[in-house]
Nucleic acid binder design. Structure first.
Lengths: 248, 248
DNA sequence: CGTCGGGTTGATAACTTTCAAATTTCGTGG
DNA sequence: CCACGAAATTTGAAAGTTATCAACCCGACG
């Protein structure tokens, strides 16, 4: 039985037994949390990093007026707060959405992986890099796409991420997000999200109900959203370009 | 005479002579380009990275319908495309806005710095990390702030970045951006940007004219934009937390 | 001159939010 | 099993924000 992270990395590089073992070591879930738990907050120093084994987490920034912008959702196989253990940047806050299981990862753990399994380390960096590329795509979503296209694009992207870890099919996926969460991610009001979802449903494109996203017409949806998952699915050629010596 | 990058890094850590020399080596401007030059484009592999010595560069993504979202502006002292030499992520495009001078940096150069001047390397990583944190702040801007606050916040942020490299004062700075560029960065129409700028001017907060941003009432502006430059100015305590051995 | 890129303004249309309220869902305790 | 309350969803109407369209102005430049 593969873990989500192993499954994701397998898309980028074929790991050998030793690497798989090292990976296994990193992600023994050692913590289980209920929904609505804070994992850290802006400005905190020396936080821990985590690998999410199951469940969903949201990372966001809160504004003074109480509104918030969701930067990203983390799904199984994603890292949480890796940046925080390396640098003190004003990071966002993290909060669990569902029940989650995660494993804590220290800086020492990461460094150990870098020295013992450089190929694995590179694959991890690549996955991290993808997660950051998604923030850019998210910015494009919010800045330049209509509410309808934006919502479609976002839900497609989530689907693509979940497929990487085996939690979605071309037909759809389980999605524990409320319309409020979706609204804060998309920069819309929850009420408008509701209308947009209704429109997508009436257009026969997708149905989001009872915690399930179902793609009713995937092709039309991809076309509407001009969705291109290349930046997620590309086989990372990095391993040919960064020899192991680059990460001693 | 300090280079912009040296000036910026000096905010984070006091570099010794050897480190300064290594830094100097990295940024011999070896290329001068006129405005409107493309530096790379989405999906390209194995691109070069650059350090910007003078002038402004824009990084953006283009949508099918021709509209675009500007992800960030690069100002002197910033890196361009570092991610690209390490990973093949679907990156954005880069284009010069003004005349620019830049130095090409290869992966080998970077790796060399990491082995010979780890403290410098860490400072560089920290600066890079800040640049990425700014994308997140940008997302918050576009997603959850009104056009007025968003514009004010963005121009303040640019000012803060420029002050780090000695190109701005508390009074204002030279800014070669057109209202169209600003619009594509802020997710607004150029026409609306014009109106917003007029309003900011009429409110006595800031004047953006003839390529100059002047802060007419910095305190009020900071308050309006709920601007917090902590994530830019914080003395990075990272050097105490990441011993040189972490970057061999 | 005449054109072109940038800036400015007004009028109108479109999109999105806000406010208010009804409806449904769901966990919990009676 | 049902009742209850909190949370989530849904809908309508009105208000507000921003985009679009259509001009016009201005300075740089050939």
């Amino acid at each position: 039985m593969q873990t989500p992270l192993a499954r994701k990395l397998a898309h980028y590089v074929a790991l050998d037994t030793a690497e798989l073992a090292a990976l296994e070591m990193l992600q023994r879930p050692d913590r289980v949390l209920g929904p609505g738990t804070e994992l850290g907050w802006e400005g905190q120093i020396g936080q821990k990093a985590f690998i999410l084994a199951s469940g969903w987490v949201v990372s966001y920034k809160t504004l003074r007026d109480g509104s918030r912008q969701i930067v990203d959702f983390q799904v199984p196989g994603d890292f949480i707060g890796v940046r925080n253990i390396l640098f003190r940047t004003a990071e966002h806050s993290f909060e669990t959405i569902t029940d989650v299981a995660l494993s804590e990862v220290s800086g020492a753990d990461l460094i150990a992986v870098f020295s013992t399994a450089p190929r694995l380390a590179t694959a991890i960096l690549w996955a991290l890099s993808c997660e950051e590329a998604m923030v850019v795509e998210h910015l494009v979503d919010v800045g330049r796409r209509s509410a309808l296209v934006r919502t479609a694009h976002f839900l497609l992207e989530l689907g693509a991420r979940l497929r990487l870890v085996g939690l979605a099919s071309p037909d759809g996926y389980d999605c524990p997000l409320t319309q409020y969460l979706l609204a804060d991610a998309l920069g819309l009001s929850a009420i408008h999200v509701n209308r947009v979802l209704r429109r997508l449903r009436e257009m026969g494109l997708l149905t989001f109900r009872d915690g399930v996203v179902r793609f009713d017409d995937l092709d039309a949806l991809v076309k509407l959203a001009e969705f291109d998952m290349a930046y997620l699915m590309d086989a990372g050629p990095l391993l040919q370009r960064i020899p192991p010596t680059a990460a001693p």
